[in-house]
Design a binder for these strands. Structure first.
Lengths: 203, 203
DNA sequence: CGACTTGAGTCAACGCTGTTGACACCCTCG
DNA sequence: CGAGGGTGTCAACAGCGTTGACTCAAGTCG
């Protein structure tokens, strides 16, 4: 976003000196309260469903103060929602069994917290900054650690395609709540989809 | 759409007797104008970006008239956006080469119209009815025609997983505009991802 | 042919949203 | 002690989707 040419500062720029540098105790406390309320409400109702006024009320704070502290609802969302889904441990394991372990990871851990985070992020995908964050996360959490460990050609593309497979699975499972996939046993999904993913990891 | 069981009528139902049955010429014309304007603006700006007032202005009509005719912005979106992406011909072809043909289809045809429709639908996925429509489309356009033609076990689940793979590919390619996948050659994507899909069709 | 029903269209308004600017407070530092 | 700036409050803005009351004309029927 071309902010540079502007002379007057927007509230978004005024808001965060360095996120915590020159901050008084009172400010730090209300910031934390707002962040906690936002995390809860975004997870519960999604980006559109959670309003700035609702978050402010939950935190016991004036709505204007939310914007004052975080600049915008979008910025608050980005700071609040944790895009890293703790995938590190799975990625670090042996690549020969990565496919099934990936699917198993998302099926097991994803029944509550991760499911809600995924839905919230997916539903906020009309925001450019959210999409950028997804791309960054793909590059940082998947391509960077995994591509160097693969054999053969097109390693980065193949990892990106693995991410696409995972994104698609979570989409049908968590967002659309597809009845066929929801009714299938986790073991079946792990075996079938895990092997499909594996065919890109070790062709 | 299961409208019948409800007793009280919402404005959405009041609006459309049977979509065109008892309609005067004038009404039919403005309805068409609204639909055309909506189709253009939804595709151009997405669900959130296109406003009812904007659509009304584009159609040269009062904003209230848009709601009067279609019941709600959401209903207008559902009637306007064509979820069937003309996949029929690809599905009907030989299953032995389905994977690569599917990927090729979405890579070729998807540069303009389909790309915009996918983005618009994805960005409206916070609406329950839009998600329901996606599920219905999966069942109708993929599972129903394809599952009976497969061999082996878990045919419906395997088709659903194919849909997940496609959804994930389109997500990274069209919505997130992932730089790695965008830079890859279509031929590479067709070969790699097509075979990954094929591994679910004919294991 | 006139009366009545009913669809088409207009207008102002409601309640909601995210965001802003002016203002007062009070802590901290020089 | 005075100045500066982080902190909080308030009312208001423009935009959103949607509603209800209203007028007008077209179509139906006794």
């Amino acid at each position: 976003m071309p902010y540079g040419w502007r002379v007057t500062k927007t509230s978004a720029e005024r808001a965060e000196p360095t996120a915590d540098s020159r901050l008084r105790p009172a400010g730090r406390a209300t910031r934390a309260a707002i962040e906690a309320a936002a995390k809860a409400l975004f997870a519960e109702r999604g980006f559109e469903g959670a309003s700035v006024r609702g978050i402010a009320a939950e935190a016991g704070v004036d709505p204007a103060l939310v914007i004052r502290h975080f600049g915008s609802k979008e910025a608050l969302f980005l700071r609040t929602i944790d895009t890293s889904l703790g995938i590190g441990a799975v990625i670090d394991g042996p690549v020969e069994t990565l496919g099934r372990r990936l699917v198993a990871y998302f099926l097991e851990g994803g029944n509550t917290a991760m499911r809600r985070r995924f839905v919230a992020i997916a539903q906020a995908s009309h925001l450019q900054q959210v999409r950028d964050e997804m791309v960054r996360h793909t590059a940082e959490a998947y391509i960077a650690p995994l591509a160097p460990r693969l054999d053969g050609e097109d390693r980065e593309v193949r990892v990106a395609l693995v991410v696409a497979q995972i994104a698609g699975l979570l989409n049908l499972l968590f967002l659309q709540e597809d009845p066929v996939l929801s009714a299938a046993s986790p073991a079946t999904l792990v075996a079938l989809y895990g092997d499909a993913i594996q065919s890109l990891v070790t062709p």
